[in-house]
Design a protein around this nucleic acid. Structure first.
Length: 198
DNA sequence: TGTAGGATGCCCT
DNA sequence: GGGCATCCTACAC
């Protein structure tokens, strides 16, 4: 059978690992989005883990189950997209069915379809193209249409990329009103990478 | 049915 | 560094 997509998605089993571990494992992987306009892809260089039941910063804290958070209660590897102000943010659902955890993709390093990404972002510099959770979704063309999809098949999927030489960890960003949860070192990034959000 | 508040980004000082 | 765009969700009446 002809391989229509330019990249080979990871196996579903890739997502079957503890959320914090998955957040690190995603670093260096390639995030691909195929649309009619073309294919855009970038290496994941920054992630954040959100662990529903015990994590005040998570939308699913205390097992809050609504139409928005519903997908986090499903199997690992599903797509959780969410609208923030004027932007769309993308997460990888993790953990077992019934446990609402996810990994937020905060930054990627442009790899393929750079011209298309620049066009979507209104002609910004390369360094500013995908260095933030709202920026990368716009550059790659990820929208609420992707909610509930699986990251192991087109049009939105993850491919094994490179193994980061060094990984850093620290507190998450933008969750100052989340009590003690804001201190958890659940943000991971590729040490020294120029496309990390800050 | 009304309203308060974001897992952000950009533009202005 | 601070304010605002802008809109959907959650939750209080």
């Amino acid at each position: 059978m002809e391989q229509k997509s330019p990249f080979m998605p990871v196996d579903k089993s890739f997502f079957q690992q503890p959320t914090l571990q998955l957040a690190e494992a995603l670093l260096g992987c390639l995030l691909v989005k195929e649309t009619e306009e073309g294919t855009a892809a970038g290496f994941i260089v920054e992630t954040e883990a959100y662990r529903g039941p015990m994590d005040r910063a998570a939308h699913s804290f205390n097992n809050r189950r609504t139409k928005r958070t519903e997908i986090m209660f499903h199997e690992a590897g599903r797509v959780y997209t969410y609208v923030m102000h004027t932007h769309c943010l993308v997460n990888v659902v993790s953990a077992e069915i019934g446990i609402p955890e996810a990994v937020l993709i905060r930054a990627v390093e442009p790899y393929e379809g750079v011209d298309l990404m620049i066009e979507r972002r209104g002609g910004t510099s390369l360094k500013n193209l995908t260095s933030g959770p709202g920026k990368l979704t716009k550059a790659l063309g990820i929208t609420m249409e992707d909610y509930g999809r699986c990251f192991d098949e087109p049009p939105l999927y993850i491919v094994r990329g490179f193994t980061p030489k060094d990984i850093s960890a620290g507190p998450r960003i933008g969750i100052d009103n989340s009590g003690e949860a804001k201190e958890y070192p659940w943000r991971f990034w590729v040490t020294g990478n120029a496309f990390v959000s800050r």
